[in-house]
Design a protein around this nucleic acid. Structure first.
Lengths: 201, 201
DNA sequence: GTCCAAAGAGAATGAACATTCGTTTTGTAA
DNA sequence: TTACAAAACGAATGTTCATTCTCTTTGGAC
């Protein structure tokens, strides 16, 4: 094949990334072999290496991709000024965020919680990987902060509450849901949200 | 050396496990080489293999060890019947649990949050490893459940609140603290607890 | 239609690493 | 003291895996 359009090129890269995600869900980053990626992608070794310089680069591409879209899901909960949309209470916001994760998992046919655990471990180990992930993590925190600010304005939390600290806790609830869904396996968005309701009231 | 006492044997095993933990904190399970464990432990390759059948067995020993002692730390917060000890509010309980983790990290000279992330990833990947970790995870949930039951009895939460669901959320807050401490790095037990206070009130 | 540069294929390569093995040292028990 | 069984050692081994290299195919430009 001759030089191919840029769209085709990014499409093939997506195909390889998707194949890698399926492998990583099963085996983690380090037990995922290039042979497995090659097989899962339906391409040949040589071909994969024309789209990525190596395994390293595929993994880093995953790190920067913000696969979960959690950040946007949270931002969608915060009404734009004058939109008339109402701000959900924290338990509904949490439920929406966790439900989004499960919906997207189903849609992609990939268990995102499992992938998430792998990426966290990699972030703890590889500073470059961390640098690629951190913006997404900070973005999720910032989204919760916007939510908290709106909630304080709306009188849902006491005047003078610290939106950044509230955001820390709301951000922290997501990994807790993800980890428990993999390790214990009995959490649902509804039960988790109900727990928050009981904790708050 | 001839056959050596059982205490000496378990002591050497501990020494190897401690060395491995230092390696895993730095490199993760899969990038930790036996050569590194050997060097860090100050023993020789052959010697390490007289105490463990292989890398696999060292890793599994770590999985079942419940290194963090979080479970006990939580249980200590719940007063025994008739002890006169008072039940702390959730934010203080959370602060105590997260502070325990940092204290123990300092005491051991090991960053436990980093280790935790590695173990979660391994649990997602290796069912045997998961089976060894799960009891500790369930134990932490059970400890929070005891706390929640006591708190409901004490009137801290509304009558009819579901202690298991409250326990889900309190359990979930810990991974959130751990992950954010590694990825964002700005969480403290105090700030996190203050966030919970603001969220609750 | 012919070229040709890039893509695709898959066997070959070489490095990294867990584990083993032959040898030496050590401490206890006779 | 001597003997011996286990522990310690560390070089050698064999396997696994990422990456490369050569060869073949492909499809757009002229």
């Amino acid at each position: 094949m001759p030089k191919v359009s840029d769209e085709h090129r990014t499409e093939k890269r997506q195909q390889i990334i998707a194949a890698t995600l399926r492998c990583v869900e099963r085996d983690g980053f380090h037990k995922t072999t290039m042979a497995a990626v090659v097989e899962e992608s339906g391409l040949s070794a040589g071909s994969v290496y024309t789209y990525f310089r190596g395994k390293h680069e595929i993994i880093h591409a995953i790190a920067s991709s913000g696969v979960t879209g959690i950040r946007d899901a949270i931002n969608r909960l915060v009404p734009e000024a004058g939109s008339g949309q109402t701000l959900p209470p924290p338990e509904r916001a949490l439920e929406a965020a966790t439900q989004h994760l499960l919906d997207l998992s189903e849609q992609l046919g990939i268990n995102l919680p499992r992938i998430a655990l792998q990426t966290w471990a990699e972030a703890a180990r590889d500073p470059e990987f961390l640098a690629l992930m951190a913006p997404e993590a900070r973005g999720i925190r910032a989204a919760w902060r916007s939510y908290a600010e709106a909630a304080i304005d709306a009188g849902q939390f006491r005047e003078g509450a610290d939106p950044e600290k509230i955001a820390m806790v709301l951000t922290g609830l997501l990994p807790g849901f993800i980890l428990q869904s993999v390790v214990i396996g009995d959490v649902t968005p509804q039960a988790y949200a109900a727990g928050l309701t009981d904790l708050i009231n």
